[in-house]
Amino acid sequence: MNEYLLNFELNEKQIVLRTSPSSRLVDLLRNDLNLTGTKVSCEVGRCGACMVMVDGKQMNACLTMAYQCEGKKVTTIEGVSEQKIDPIQQAFLEEGGFQCGYCTPGMVMSIKAKLLEHPKATFAELKEALSGNLCRCTGYGGIYRALERIVNEQSSQLLRR
């Protein structure tokens, strides 16, 4: 195995890891770094269960190779809410936006990436941000209620300024 030292920022901490450049990011996170919030499902980039942010952009960790993370800033679901629950997670929780919960970390990451890019995103824009995420349990009603809540809470916060 051809190894090299991978240097990147993970959840605001500097990481140096000896690995193969062709290792998948999802495997590094789960197996080498014990961050299991990033899920493995389809392994071909269709379901979004493994969604993370790389330099603020949503990326499927199952399709991202180690060498692509060199010098980058990677954020996983664990990095979204280290101190307290993120408002996106709170909306999913209170609106029943999950059933088994397997897809939820990926969905939270997709919404987070969209809101970092466009803080005043509409319901339609947030829904579009989830186009790479699949849920097989909920029927999407609770997920869409969570998106509506996020949009409404953003509007309320903007009005209070």
Rank of each mutant, 00 (worst) to 15 (best):
E78Y: 01
K120S: 15
Q89Y: 03
T75Q: 14
V54C: 10
Y140H: 06
I143D: 00
N152C: 05
D32N: 12
L93W: 06
K73G: 00
Q83H: 13
K13F: 08
V16W: 01
A91Q: 01
G56Q: 09
T64Q: 04
R160H: 06
R46L: 13
I150L: 04
L63S: 11
S131E: 15
A113T: 06
K13E: 15
L29W: 04
I111Q: 06
S41Y: 03
D27K: 02
R30F: 07
Q14D: 13
K112N: 06
R161V: 04
G141A: 09
F123I: 10
V80C: 14
L130M: 14
E95D: 11
K127N: 15
G48A: 11
T76G: 07
K127W: 09
T104V: 08
M1E: 12
G101M: 09
K13G: 10
M51Y: 08
I88K: 02
N133F: 08
T36F: 02
T64L: 05
L5Y: 07
L17H: 09
M1A: 14
C100H: 13
G97D: 02
A121V: 11
L63K: 06
I150Q: 00
V74C: 05
N133S: 14
C100E: 13
E95V: 00
R46C: 11
E117K: 15
I77Q: 06
K112S: 05
G132S: 13
V74Y: 01
Q14G: 11
G97N: 00
G96A: 04
